[in-house]
Amino acid sequence: MKKRLNLFSKKKRFNAFASYANKIKRFGTIIGLIFFVLFVITITRTIILRAEMNDLLKKKQLYLSLLMEEKDVEANIRFFKGKQTQLYTYEKDDARFAPYYSILLDMLNTSTDSATLDSIEIDKTRSTSFVIKFKDYETMISFLKYVESEEFLKNFDELSMASLSLNRDVVVVSTARYANKNFQLQFKGKFKELNEESN
């Protein structure tokens, strides 16, 4: 029996592939073109980016050489700022007695002539305690009215009267005894913070 080869059955497989082949070629060409365009864009952007990087590298070199020339100045400025920070920090430990003392003295002189500042204590938190002496009762009352005024209170964050006392000093001259009365008012409070220019 002769062996027969049926080409028609074989032909079907290759015909199917032939139709796919044309579609593959068509779509492949389109996709290939798209990807080729993307490739060209990417390469172009890469070239531009390299040029920008070269510019940046030149700028970096320029700034580095400038900073190298001025490294002593930079070191001095860093030292200045560091030391100045230390100065500002430690200055906060100071009670700044003088300006607050002056304020209180001015207010006292404004209110009355016959009152004296007997003692005063001020600390770095601006907390204060002071004693004012008066020769007579009327002066003390007048001062108390002044203490309640806006003009006096504007210099304090808080203020209260701690005590009132009457002292009698006896002075002996020859055989005569003289009694001097004086009134003392003690206040406790906190000054309002002054700005730097007031120091």
């Binding site: 430690y90 200055e91 430990d93 009670a95 003088a98 007997d118 003692s119 005063i120 204590e121």
Partner: peptide, 23 residues
């Protein structure tokens, strides 16, 4: 002295609390 102690000596000087009695 109380007005000028802070820098006058050439050193930073502070005082945390000052009690002053004029008498």
């Amino acid at each position: 002295f109380l007005r000028n102690y802070e820098y006058t000596g050439g050193r930073l000087i502070t005082s945390e609390k000052i009690e002053f009695s004029g008498v």
